[in-house]
Simulated assay, not measured.
Amino acid sequence: MSFNDTGLDVTDGVTSNGRWGVESAGIDWEFSLDQGSSWTRGSGASFAVTGDGAKVIWVRARDDAGNKSEIVRVNCVLDTTPPAALGVAGQTEGFTNSLRLSGIEPGARWEYSLDEQRSWAPGQCSALGILGNNLSRIWLRQLDLAGNASGAQAFDLKSPTLVAHEASGNPLQPSVLTTGLQTYLIHGVVVRGDADYVTWNIPKGQKVLSVKLVQYVSEDAIAFYALQRNKVFDAGIDVSRMLVYGHMGPSDLGRNVLANVPKSQLGEGAMTLWFQQTGPLPTQYAIEVVLAPAD
């Protein structure tokens, strides 16, 4: 007997799908939802359980002579009810806009979308820090323990209460991303001669978990990025002083560029991003930075 655990943790027994599969190998079977007080003859290879809440499910095989197998017992929680939509409040500190989220259910997670809900990325904690001048709208939703999605909320990043900031083109005076959260988006538009430099500080007890390209819109499929462990980008073109560097484009979406960097280099201190398009075609980009507690 099996069921599709749709939840955020596929071992927690919480699901939004009440369809249970039965491998009967042609043998007659029956199931009980009241711990054996009554039994229902099954047919085919599955049966449906309805009604949200905790379930105790028993299944056994039987033949025409009334012989019965041992009972297979499984507990689960069926939850088919979507959670409420998130509450979102924007505030600004320096050049960084923070979207503070409320109404997150216990055990749930929140997600954001930059492509009008075609794809979703998970966020950490209960806020999203944003610095840049490219994105105009972001969608936000939550997923509960069973995997049910709330209604999506569109948030206008061009709101007059927020700050649109074009990142600094000076490597010795990068724009400062105000930290204190765990999930950030750096976004902008670059073209030849207009690089973006952004710096952030990794607090004590924290580390950079990932740096990923999450949006790339351009006819030119190749841009350049580099990261330096410093509060400015003074490495110039000396790659030995860069933490990581290379090309970025559509094929790199979702790739963590720090995946192979030793953990010892990802902890407390400053880190500066250089993002550049060397060609004449404008490139819109968004880079996700996620911090997490140090190991």
Rank of each mutant, 00 (worst) to 15 (best):
V189P: 03
L243Q: 11
V244I: 12
N260A: 10
A259Q: 12
D252M: 12
Y245C: 06
N256P: 07
K207W: 09
V239Q: 15
L213I: 03
M242A: 03
L243F: 02
Q228V: 14
F233K: 06
V189W: 10
R255I: 15
G193A: 01
L253A: 08
S218Q: 06
V191N: 09
G188E: 00
V257C: 02
K231L: 08
A223N: 13
H187N: 12
I222T: 15
V190A: 07
D220K: 06
D252P: 00
G193W: 00
S218P: 05
L243V: 05
G193K: 01
V261Y: 09
N260I: 00
N230D: 13
Y225P: 05
D220A: 12
Y216T: 05
G249H: 06
N260P: 07
V208D: 01
S240H: 06
V211M: 13
D238H: 08
Y216W: 09
V217Q: 12
A226P: 01
S210V: 01
W200T: 11
G188K: 02
P250R: 12
F224D: 15
G205P: 10
G205A: 04
A223M: 05
N256A: 01
N201F: 15
G246F: 02
A235G: 11
H187E: 11
R241S: 08
V261T: 13
L258D: 08
H187Y: 08
Y245L: 03
N260F: 09
A221Y: 11
H187L: 05
V257R: 09
Y197W: 04
L213R: 05
P262A: 01
H187S: 09
I222E: 14
H247A: 13
L258E: 11
Y216N: 02
Q206T: 07
D252G: 00
V191P: 04
L243K: 07
A195Q: 08
L243H: 05
N230L: 00
G188Y: 02
K204Q: 15
A259S: 12
